[in-house]
Design a protein around this nucleic acid. Structure first.
Lengths: 338, 338
DNA sequence: ATATTGAACGTAAACGCTTACGTTTAAGGA
DNA sequence: TCCTTAAACGTAAGCGTTTACGTTCAATAT
């Protein structure tokens, strides 16, 4: 059975080349012949074989979306990467590109040297998502020769194409919000100091408070779960009972803090205002619902895909960091200091 | 630049065919020549071009994982398909298969007739996930000629390869649990009657209660969100104030019911026991934490992948429905009737 | 000793497209 | 009218594999 291209060619007594040209919208075929070819192709329900095309052009029209398997700082209870992936899908759906996914396991992360992981997938480019993908792996991928875009991550000492949320500003907004509500004794609940987005959030808080002459006690804990939020809360209020508002470095911890406060018999927000960060799905469903900083995950995915696609056109483009802006979402867990 | 296969062939003064045979572990090449070929391949860091191989064999070593975009019955606030996908990944990671994903949009769902969607992807098989993928689409995919496995779905009148959770039994267990706690006035909160998993859950409840001579009032609402859980709660208790326990058809609704009860000043579980279904991530973090029926999502993904892979070997195998068993998870939202 | 067999290996076509290059043809310029 | 030019189209090689079919040759059977 001949391929559809061949069939059209023979039916119309022309060459494969002309059919291919017409189908790909390339010059070199006359107006009305082109029309007849396209018509016939439609009738025959022609779908190009991306795989044959791939062999011929060494383009696969697939991109990889690879996420680190460990739950990260902000995604304990949230389909964080699911949302990002959705964004990637949305922009790819408008193109010919397909998405090939994989989870980055430790095995892959520790043995990137042979490029096997990327080469066997035959992808044109890749998106790497997750804050704790080790630098050395990113560097290795960069050397594989295909474009790389990072999401929720960056490289330590050199510029790279990446998409990140505006953590500094988000934290700044959060602090500002608390200050505007009249709070003057504000405590901070933070995760491990060396996580970069954590550090940036702490920095944003500190900066905003400093602007109005305030300094905040900071509790660092080594995880960012609900339970560590509780623990941080207890430590914070025992050291600083005068506090009327708490900023948490992510929503899970904020929710933990709310629980702990409620367990102690303090009302949120009447006695204590608490604000989170991330706007995970449950933030809106918590009781009280959580005031927080929204990260536009889907948009991050879209930006990542767009960046990657444009890189595919021009691989030499200079590395750019895209910072998506975040937004304060006022809900029930914060109110004016009484 | 010659391909690596050609390079090895010429270095060793043999033919491409022998190299290919050795690489693919096929008979027809002598023991020690084979060894030398493999050795050289390792040295050269050979990675087969799946795309060239695909052209030659018309196997792509990729499967599609396609999920319906609408949030379904049970996944409002839960990375349901994320977990399933994880399972799929885990088993694929042990094979040569890659995963190509896409979201089934309405546009795709309504125009499947041309197979464009599946053909252009050049996949060897596909997993379709989501309870409300229309029958006609599934049928169309079946006719595309490649194996199809359904997850969280089935076909109305003909057998098909699918993976589902044991909804009847789950509901049975839930009801049994309430009965064993001493409850005799039990109400049911359910979603739309025509959703099949919903119907099976209602059926399981009814059956278990009937076994001990009980019948339960059932409230059907048209969505399965937290808010509709609240609404259903109010309707239920206004019509049946004597009720001491509530079974909800999914966790979101159960949580809604808990909220509503708490708002009314009733304590859960002291005054009212409430049990959910699904065991979404938040169930464990709710206060009180939610007693519910756990669906092993990851395992469903694994089963789906395994089924698909075996179908790839033997496409003629008879359609099988795999039902994964569910489990009662006792937490805080239920207790003995006081 | 010859005939038979099968393992080892080579040849070359095929998979479905793209594309560099060559040829034809008609239009436009002098 | 003849020459130039470019658009239209054809030719055929090539992308990296696999595989049906041939060939060679040594081992075994007779």
């Amino acid at each position: 059975m001949p391929s559809i291209i061949e069939q059209i060619a023979s039916e119309l007594n022309i060459s494969n080349a002309s059919v291919s040209r017409a189908l790909n919208d390339r010059p070199g075929v006359g107006k009305d012949l082109r029309e007849r070819i396209l018509q016939r192709a439609r009738d025959l329900n022609y779908t190009p074989s991306l795989i044959a095309r791939g062999l011929a052009t060494s383009q696969t029209f697939a991109i990889g979306f690879f996420v680190h398997e460990k739950p990260n700082l902000s995604t304990q209870t949230d389909p964080f990467y699911g949302e990002i992936l959705h964004g990637v899908e949305q922009v790819c759906a408008e193109t010919d590109y397909h998405i090939s996914i994989a989870t980055l396991t430790d095995a892959i992360l520790t043995a990137p040297a042979d490029f096997r992981f990327v080469r066997e997938r035959r992808i044109d480019g890749m998106i790497l998502a997750g804050p704790d993908i080790p630098n050395h792996f990113v560097v290795a991928m960069l050397q594989s020769g295909i474009p790389v875009v990072l999401v929720d991550n960056k490289l330590d000492h050199s510029p790279i194409n990446c998409i990140n949320s505006d953590d500094d500003r988000g934290a700044y907004l959060a602090a500002k919000h608390l200050v505007e509500l009249g709070h003057r004794s504000i405590g901070l609940i933070a995760g491990p100091e060396h996580w970069s987005s954590n550090a940036r959030r702490v920095w944003g808080y500190t900066w905003a408070l400093q602007e109005v002459g305030l300094t905040a006690p900071i509790i660092h804990v080594d995880r960012t779960t609900i339970d560590s939020g509780k623990a941080a809360y207890y430590q914070l209020v025992s050291e600083h009972p005068e506090i009327t508002a708490i900023g948490a470095v992510n929503d899970s911890m904020a929710i933990g803090a709310i629980r702990a406060a409620q367990d102690e018999g303090r009302r949120v927000p009447e006695d204590l205002s608490i604000i989170g960060f991330d706007d995970i799905e449950w933030a809106a469903h918590n009781s009280p619902s959580l005031t927080t900083i929204n990260i536009p995950k889907r948009q991050m995915g879209k930006e990542a895909a767009r960046r990657l696609l444009s890189l595919l056109d021009d691989p030499e483009a200079a590395p750019t960091e895209i910072i998506v802006s975040v937004q304060l979402v006022k809900r029930e867990s914060t109110q004016e200091r009484s």
